[in-house]
Design a protein around this nucleic acid. Structure first.
Lengths: 184, 184
DNA sequence: TGTTTGTGGTTAGCTCCCTAACCATCCCAA
DNA sequence: TTGGGATGGTTAGGGAGCTAACCACAAACA
């Protein structure tokens, strides 16, 4: 699950040392990158880890949250494909997620009478109750994790992260190396 | 693999809206947290994703890098247990990783003659060559990803991430909710 | 010296995600 | 109206991580 497996991050001096052997290594970029991954790993562990106590994995949580949000505007019915797209998992994975969620009585899956290819997934009262029970603590953990940062610092962090994110988004598909790579 | 499955992050207005229903939801904390996870996901995708082209998964990469580092100071021999600890995976996982790395001829595994419980894992010349071949591009991608940030901004980012990390580290085991939770 | 405890490595079986392939249904256009 | 694509959902199989249990060996202690 974590993105960064290393237990101890290399110290800056070590990076400088390694940069002699690998001229392409940008020590400060490397350091920032590793700390970014490490922070996200730790944050996810602290915030999302406890969900496992309720037998809620990351994927399950995502589905339930999407269903909760759509619950309000009940106009739009949503099926596995739409859910998969919104949640960022494959349709096959979504089938499996819904299977177990249905088995646990948290969602229902009914065939759509209009388009007979489609299924309609809905949150059950039990699913709704579960969310109401776990969300407050979930949000508390999030707030707790970020509590060392002032509002200004959060804004700054957001600005810097957005720069990284935009840069990452400009990389086509992750498979082809960034085109600008040779240029820089 | 990603920490955050949602495709589209909720907008700030939506968070404010949800905060009415969930008083524990701190919108700016939530926003910062989600962007942190998203940035790390995207960064990992861009930087580490291309390693898959060389049939190098995250875990395999970690093992190879650890062996490369220790290659210099050949004094310390290291076995699966030590590797597992340093790489942050279970011993069982490390057994599997070494299995396939050995099968691919990238590492060797020999029994320790002194302590007959132990095995000694070493990088082969082929493994060393592979790293030399893929590391320059790896470092280039890292530098490219962080290139939108100035040195000052990298320092700032590091400072903010460290605050989050220290806070996360002060949470016992991820399973018990932070003790300070009720206090705040 | 013999027993107990601890440590290293492996195996077995699980979860959660993926891709590839498959059918059923819909839609569009010849 | 009928034949081809799209699109939706599922199944099958695989990869990478985990825990629990196991055996072999080492170390410590009565």
């Amino acid at each position: 699950m974590p993105h960064l497996l290393l237990k101890d991050l290399p110290r800056y001096e070590c990076l400088l040392e390694s940069a002699k052997e690998f001229p392409d290594l940008d020590p400060s970029a490397c350091e920032a990158f590793l700390h970014l991954l490490r922070s996200a790993d730790e944050g996810a562990r602290v915030v999302q880890g406890p969900l496992a106590q309720h037998n809620i994995s990351q994927g399950r949580f995502g589905v339930l949250m999407l269903l909760l949000k759509r619950c309000g505007r009940n106009a739009s019915t949503l099926g596995p494909a739409e859910l998969a797209d919104a949640a960022g998992v494959s349709r096959a994975t979504m089938t499996g997620l819904i299977d177990t969620l249905e088995r646990d009585g948290l969602v229902t899956r009914e065939p759509d009478t209009v388009d007979r290819r489609m299924m309609i997934v809905c949150l059950t009262p039990k699913g709704h109750e579960l969310l109401q029970a776990i969300l407050p603590d979930h949000f508390k953990r999030m707030a707790w994790l970020m509590s060392p940062l002032s509002e200004d610092e959060r804004q700054t962090l957001l600005r810097l992260l957005n720069k990284i994110q935009r840069q990452a988004d400009s990389s086509p598909e992750a498979s082809p190396a960034p085109a600008a790579l040779a240029v820089s």
